[in-house]
Design a protein around this nucleic acid. Structure first.
Length: 552
RNA sequence: GGCCCUGUAGCUCAGCUGGAUAGAGCGCUUGCCUCCGGAGCAAGAAGUCGCAGGUUCGAAUCCUGCCAGGGUCACCA
């Protein structure tokens, strides 16, 4: 609806420009049509008069009037010129009533669109190496990644969820040696963890299970056996955590395969051939200075071992080769700095990297008992997702993880998350949904059934609260598109909280908006509105992977 | 020192890619359950948008500098 109006508005602008100053340079992208902030400003507000004032050398209010006169839009009932030169557009009420029937007709598809149809998107997220359980920091990555993937699906993209991991390298050898030590300890022998070994209790448990199962049979086992054992156990644990969050992946991509199929060598050679590699200080360097970046980076250490950057480049070349139109990396601040180098180097290989982008999130601090616990992967102090899930459940966890914009630091307030009360915003939204369901149940108990959608007496929805709610529902598809474009699930949480509040206000502000009454038409109209709100809340929650309970 | 993110109400944060009187949740004050769910609603107090310049009809939003917090800079992915 908004888009149609915007198109007509731009036509009107074009007419006015043609008439007054055909040669003027006008930036049409600067013209916006947005939902008005307050009802005094109508339904939609447009800044075209102000934007055109300069290039057309005319007073903005005068231009606004000309645009208003040139606008051909049957839905627009009235236009006011306000303030410095805004166009305030008032739509006919029937337009908003129609929103209710559209929602009911669309059902689960309400909010979904083909705005980005034809795109194939790969979202790579979590990507934790199998050296330990997922921590709360991975949790933010996991929830954001999955929610962004859901948003892409909602606007018509085909989405591949991918997990990239490395089970090779020094860290895994240390892990293997750590498990061996724990295993020997489990058999009652003297054994010491290697220096900078993995100290977490989870390895003790894995070792105990191994000792119970194998007895002393593994005392002479190879490092590789321990490595595989640890890796399998830890991966099983990671997958079970992800399952608790309702997250599953289409592809698990192993970094080792890039070594096995020769990609690493190929990439290094190609970069060398392209003239972007040189030797210095015993290492092999990426000449990123000549890719418009501020400095060079090491690709192969003086020890002969590649840095993580080289396989990263090979991996991104591999992703691009699979033909995705868009490739998203969900990265924490510790990985973000490498990305421009990886992207530039991948481009230097001749790959089209235009669709490569990052969704970056900031660290999570855990707040408990008024104290802030800084989550640090390096230091031993970390809290696992499972530990938190034991206390709050997936819905609360997911909500809290996407409640803030990804690029701001997140304080996860464990005490608040644990509260099943009005202080906790997840419940406010879910409660509204349950309350709506309750009203529908009540209606069905009383034998009230809705007439066919086309026959609904929606004109009976004439109170300001009802029109306000219908407008809010009407904005939902735009909201989804916007959130997907911004890669910001947070926008959905905010919308849902506002919608839930608007409903609670409507139903209990003492203005007598009883849904079920003696007036059959009014009851039907309001019941239809109830259904539309419920559908929108449920669809919005689904975008976040959060359940919409019918009872609480 | 270089680069990246952040600085908005007592706290945690929005602010729709430059718009009209800067908003929400929590906390605080005061009211509301003979009535479809009080996990709710109504009203109120609370802000030099980190600081200083600049760009223009108009800046929390864009530019520059500074201050503060976090991150990162081949031997950890």
């Amino acid at each position: 609806m908004r888009e149609d109006l915007e198109a007509r508005l731009l036509q009107a602008v074009a007419r006015v420009v043609r008439e007054l100053a055909p040669d003027a340079e006008v930036d049409l992208a600067a013209i916006s049509l947005v939902p008005a902030r307050s009802p005094e400003h109508g339904d939609y507000a447009c800044n075209a008069g102000l934007v055109l004032a300069k290039p057309l050398r005319s007073p903005p209010r005068l231009l606004a009037e000309k645009i208003a006169a040139a606008l051909d839009a049957p839905d627009v009932e009235r236009i006011e010129i306000a303030g410095p030169g805004f166009l305030n557009l008032y739509l006919a009420r029937e337009r908003w009533h129609q929103v209710v029937s559209r929602v009911l007709r669309a059902g689960e598809a309400w909010g979904r669109s083909d705005a980005s149809a034809g795109e194939t998107v790969q979202v790579e997220f979590v990507s934790a190496n199998p050296t330990g359980p997922l921590t709360i920091g991975h949790g933010r990555n996991a929830v954001i990644g999955d929610a962004v993937a859901r948003l892409f699906e909602a606007v018509g993209c085909k989405v591949t969820r991918e997990y990239y991991f490395n089970d090779g390298g020094r860290q895994m050898r240390v892990l293997a040696d750590s498990l061996r030590a724990r295993y020997e300890q489990a058999l009652g022998r003297e054994a010491e963890l290697p220096e900078d070994g993995y100290q977490g209790d989870y390895l003790v448990e894995i070792a105990r299970a191994l000792a119970d199962e194998q007895g002393e049979a593994w005392l002479d086992a190879e490092q590789d056996q321990f490595k595989k054992r640890a890796q399998d156990a830890i991966f099983a644990d990671i997958e079970s955590t992800l399952q608790r969050l309702g997250i599953s992946f289409d592809v698990y991509f192993n970094e080792a395969s890039l070594y096995e199929n020769g990609s690493i060598d190929e990439v290094l050679e190609s970069l060398r051939d392209a003239g972007f590699v040189y030797e210095g200080e015993g290492a092999v360097w990426l000449d990123s200075t000549h890719m418009d970046l501020d400095r060079d980076r090491v690709l192969v250490r003086s020890t002969g071992e590649p840095t993580y950057m080289l396989p990263d480049i090979a991996y991104h070349r591999e992703k691009v080769s699979r033909g995705f139109t868009r490739i998203i990396d969900v990265l924490g601040p510790d990985h973000i700095e490498q990305f421009p180098y990886v992207k530039a180097a991948t481009g230097a290989l001749g790959c089209d990297v235009a669709g490569l982008e990052v969704v970056m999130y900031q660290w999570v601090n855990l707040r408990s008992g008024g104290e802030i616990v800084k989550m640090s992967t390096r230091k031993a102090s970390f809290i696992t997702i499972d530990e938190v899930l034991d206390q709050v459940g997936s819905d609360v966890f997911r909500y809290f993880m996407v409640e803030r914009r990804a690029d701001t630091h997140l304080d996860f307030d464990l005490d608040l998350a644990r509260e099943r009360s009005d202080r906790n915003p997840v419940y406010k939204i879910q409660y509204a949904h349950a309350r709506l369901c309750s009203i529908e149940r009540k209606a069905s108990e009383r034998g009230v059934t809705l007439p066919p959608i086309d026959d609904l007496p929606l004109q009976r929805l004439d109170s300001p609260g009802e029109i306000e709610l219908a407008k809010r529902l009407g904005h939902f598809p735009d909201l989804v598109v916007h959130a997907a474009r911004a890669r910001e699930p947070q926008e959905v949480t905010r919308y849902l909280l506002d919608l839930a509040t608007a409903f609670h206000t409507y139903i209990s502000d003492g203005r007598g908006h009883r849904v079920l009454s003696e007036d059959a038409d009014l009851s039907h109209a309001r019941l239809a509105l109830v259904g539309a709100i419920r559908t929108t809340l449920a669809n919005g929650l689904a975008l976040l992977g959060i359940s919409a309970p019918e009872r609480m």
